[in-house]
Design a protein around this nucleic acid. Structure first.
Length: 570
RNA sequence: CGGGGUGUAGCGCAGUCUGGUAGCGCACCUGCUUUGGGAGCAGGGGGUCGGAGGUUCGAAUCCUCUCGCCCCGACCA
């Protein structure tokens, strides 16, 4: 491709609303253009990277035994009512009506449609297992889209769904998908980890997330440097509270006057005690009423763990305006003794400890010497706090580390959640009807491309890993001399003939402009043809990653460049 | 959802407080010079000032409403 006939315009200035580096660079490099909040056009250059990644994804999915199909983006509401998610999915589900006032959704995911498809086509255990995938545009109406392609509303996703007659069969496919994902991200040159994850409102049992490690990541992952335990922070556990403390004699219940101490830090300072010796009280509003959660004062409550324990679909911090009415105490002085909350949860970090200092459910008052069972009913015990860096690994006890990551893939063992509600069944060997056991596997295509940039760039622009670079090589002509233009053209054509993805920068621009653009766009390899070196029978070539310039005879450089491209394609 | 901000040429911005009929840089077009890391000079094209309504002789500017976009917060008890 010649630049002068391509559709590629770089921006010298950064659009004001870009907030992460990948978004800035993709906009500046002419890869994407924002059309509305969280909605982008993939310009030709951006589309090339997307297509390259899609190609890798298809190869690995096919290799792992998955079969491609394509389902509609627009889906009838009936399917979502059948699965129950028409009610449960919330505002992220874009609902639309057709001219007949019939309800549809723009699919954020395709469990319903695939389940409908498979129950129709498959009746016998002989036809199972199957694993079907598609690469397609989805829409999730995010509250606050940001970070360019990393958190858009419209986005391209590879999603696949497998159907099985047994847990063992699901385990096999799950493992095959785990390996396929690892292969995909490895081929893209991405530094990534697979971690245990929460299943969220997709539902199901086991689940792993694939995280590309990057400072700008929205998720935190907990990782053990020794035994390779890895988990999303929403899910991670530690061994921290395994040992029970020494039993202590119970003290009398006694009120303490603690004016103006609403936060746990204030209370600790006021009483001269470390926050670890206090009890922090959180109150959540749920669709089943207010719930009180007690955690050790120096720990943080983990909403995901709490929500999963409660089994509620909606939960948020109790609004101040409803606080007194719901708990019977003022904000900041809430506690389990005499509370109106019917459900009280307590973190295991408090188990076995006597004489708690808690809020007194009265203004400016805390209570000391509060004891489980004697002063308030036995709470529901569980792991309700978030792991901190340095906590001991739940498997081997080594100090855990916390990293930031971008979630680029997520695989689930769904079980029979959808096959039950949507009656996706088959007849087994005995002629008995059984629900199919399902798995589902998602991979964010745009997000993966963006994460590659987050992980690999410098002050001048993108540094593409070769496999998903929009072009593998750029040939830059420096100057208008006939010899230069002829040599550049010749090299370009020979690269094309050799099957190399090459862009010929044949623009009538000053060298500085061409070089800056080449760095910005991030072509992994560059060949520059200039009059001076050409007079000595030489052209220059360099890698974007180190920009070290090497000179050589044209044929020799050509051979080296082709060789480098081929090497990177394996 | 709550709070804050912002909307002026393709991109980045000034002008708004104190109303007087729109400007700068980049990009774009023409010419000359220049040519290995975002050139210089000269000339030029391009804007319903987000939208609607109002005040006024006169509105980008003041008022009301509305829409878009951005940021921050939503573990604080």
């Amino acid at each position: 491709m010649r630049w002068t006939r391509y559709f590629l315009n770089t921006l010298r200035e950064v659009p004001a609303d870009a907030d992460v580096i990948s978004q800035k660079l993709m906009m500046r490099a002419g890869m994407i253009r924002k059309v509305a909040a969280g909605i982008y056009t993939y310009l030709p250059l951006g589309l090339r990277s997307i297509k390259k990644l899609e190609h890798i994804v298809r190869e690995e999915m096919n290799r792992a035994g998955a079969v491609e199909l394509s389902m509609p983006a627009i889906q009838p509401a009936e399917l979502w009512m059948e699965s129950g998610r028409w009610q449960k999915y919330g505002k992220e589900l874009l609902r639309i009506k057709d001219r007949h006032e019939r309800d549809f959704v723009f699919g954020p995911t395709h469990e319903e449609v695939i389940t409908d498809t498979v129950r129709d086509a498959i009746n016998s255990y002989r036809q199972l297992p199957v694993n079907l995938y598609q690469i397609q545009t989805k829409f999730r109406d995010e509250v606050r889209p940001r970070f360019g392609l990393m958190r858009g509303r419209e986005f391209i996703m590879k999603d696949s769904y497998s159907f099985h007659t047994s847990r063992e069969s699901l385990d096999e496919t799950y493992e095959a998908m785990r390996q396929a994902y690892t292969a995909i991200f490895h081929r893209c040159g991405l530094d990534h980890v697979a971690v245990e994850a929460d299943t969220g409102n997709i539902g199901g049992s086991a689940s792993h997330e694939f995280m590309v490690l990057a400072q700008s990541g929205e998720d935190a992952v907990v990782s053990c440097p020794k035994c390779r335990y890895g988990a999303n922070i929403e899910k991670a556990t530690s061994k921290f509270f395994d040992d029970e403390p020494e039993p202590a004699p119970m003290q009398e219940l006694a009120p303490i006057h603690t004016p103006g101490t609403q936060s746990i830090e204030d209370v600790g300072r006021f009483l001269g005690k470390p926050t670890s010796q206090l009890v922090k009280t959180l109150v959540f509003d749920t669709d089943e009423g207010p719930v009180m959660v007690l955690v050790r004062g120096d720990r943080e409550g983990n909403e995901i763990k709490i929500k999963n324990h409660l089994g509620v679909t909606w939960m948020e911090m109790l609004a101040d305006s409803r606080f007194e009415e719901a708990t019977g105490g003022p904000v900041g002085y809430c506690g389990p003794v005499g509370t109106k909350c019917r459900r009280v949860l307590a973190d295991v970090s408090l188990k076995g400890r006597a004489n708690w200092i808690v809020g007194g459910n009265k203004r400016d008052t805390h209570i000391s010497g509060a004891n489980v069972a004697r002063d308030f009913p036995e709470p529901e015990w569980g792991d309700f706090t978030t792991v901190f860096a340095g906590d001991p690994c739940p498997r081997c006890g080594t100090a855990l580390e916390i990293y930031r990551g971008i979630e680029v893939g997520h695989i689930f063992k769904l079980g029979t959640k959808y096959s039950d509600s949507m009656h996706c069944t088959y007849l087994d060997e005995k002629g008995e009807r059984q629900s199919m056991i399902m798995g589902c596997y998602g991979l964010g295509v745009g997000r993966t491309v963006a994460s590659a940039i987050e992980q690999s760039h410098d002050a001048d622009g993108i540094i593409w890993p070769m496999p998903i670079a929009p072009f593998e090589v750029v040939v830059t002509s420096v100057g208008k001399e006939e010899s230069v233009v002829n040599m550049a053209t010749e090299l370009y054509e020979k690269l094309l003939a050799a099957g190399v993805d090459v862009l010929f920068d044949d623009r009538d621009e000053r060298p500085g402009v061409k070089f800056k653009d080449a760095d910005l766009v991030g072509f992994p390899l560059r060949i520059a043809v200039g009059a001076k070196s050409l007079a000595n029978g030489q052209v220059e070539w360099s890698f974007r990653k180190d920009r070290a310039k090497q000179l050589g005879a044209p044929e020799e450089v050509l051979a080296r460049v082709i060789d480098e491209v081929k090497k990177a394609r394996v």
